[in-house]
């Protein structure tokens, strides 16, 4: 088992954003975390990465308890993430942005630069290496987030809405990139709103609603689950929708 979360609860005051959620991740998985806005999936995600401290529950990585480790210590172990709102290092070039990730496993500048260039080559951004990162648009920034995370040579990569704000063509390219990363042996956790992405990428899906896990299984299983449809569309709509393919209702491929 690569990554495991046991009974994660995260409370802000008396409000439980995540309530007793558990998940296991095997080598080679692509786990999709979905749910309506405010369902708690991002909070759960941030508990896995160490950006948020859990109120209760444990997080284990390769059998080791990492609940109390800081984000940088988790990165050291092989956990990498991207941010929903790209956290680009604006004062640096594209190459330097990726070098920050590469420095985790490279002590010297030249070594980090070589690694960073290889990553940029891999994600198709090598031509932009010397451009100031602040000149990138949303698709470029999203891709740079992934490149930086890859440069840390992670075992697990957690993508927080890596496709949000991209147009249909850019989403296709991003899906290709994620597939490529997966083929290279990296296990993935993706939080995503775009159903198409989940349907075409995820091997397993976990659905959140009001801080609780309401369903899990293959993408087809969960989208056929009445509780999931109710969570997205409301109970009455779910009844009315009976007989239609649920995926269709959620804007997925028909």
């Amino acid at each position: 088992m690569l990554l495991e979360a046991r009974g994660i609860t995260k409370a802000f005051g008396s409000f439980k954003a995540v309530d007793d959620a558990s998940v296991t991740l095997e080598q080679g998985d692509i786990l999709g975390l979905i749910g309506p806005n405010g369902a708690g999936k991002s909070t759960f995600f941030n508990c896995l990465t160490g950006d948020l401290r859990t109120t209760a529950g444990r997080v284990l990585f390769e059998g080791r308890d990492i609940t109390d480790l800081a984000p940088e210590q988790r990165a050291q172990l092989g956990l990498a993430r991207t941010f929903q709102l790209p956290q680009t290092f604006e004062g640096m070039t594209v190459l330097e942005n990726v070098m920050i990730g590469a420095f985790l496993r490279a002590a010297h500048r030249t070594e980090a630069e070589t690694k960073a260039r290889a990553v940029l080559e891999r994600v198709g951004m090598i031509r932009l290496a010397d451009a100031p990162a602040r000149s990138l648009g949303t698709p470029g920034r999203k891709r740079l987030e992934i490149a930086r995370a890859l440069a840390t040579e992670p075992k697990v990569l957690l993508l927080d809405e890596a496709m949000a704000g991209l147009n249909a063509h850019e989403v296709k390219l991003a899906i290709d990139l994620v597939r490529d990363i997966h083929r290279a042996g990296i296990t993935l956790v993706i939080v995503e709103h775009i159903m198409e992405v989940i349907m075409s990428l995820a091997s397993r899906v976990m659905v959140f609603h009001q801080g609780k896990e309401i369903a899990r299984g293959s993408p087809r299983e969960v989208t056929a689950n009445p509780a999931v449809i109710a969570a997205y569309l409301g109970t009455r709509a779910a009844k009315a929708a009976a007989g239609h393919t649920p995926i269709e209702l959620m804007g997925g491929p028909t």
Binding site: D51, A70, E72, F83, F89, G91, M92, I100, L104, R148
Partner: peptide, 15 residues
């Protein structure tokens, strides 16, 4: 320099 721009991102990358 990374910390200056985004401490959170820098930490997530192992800084």
């Amino acid at each position: 320099r990374a910390i200056k721009d985004s401490e959170r991102a820098a930490r997530s990358l192992g800084a």
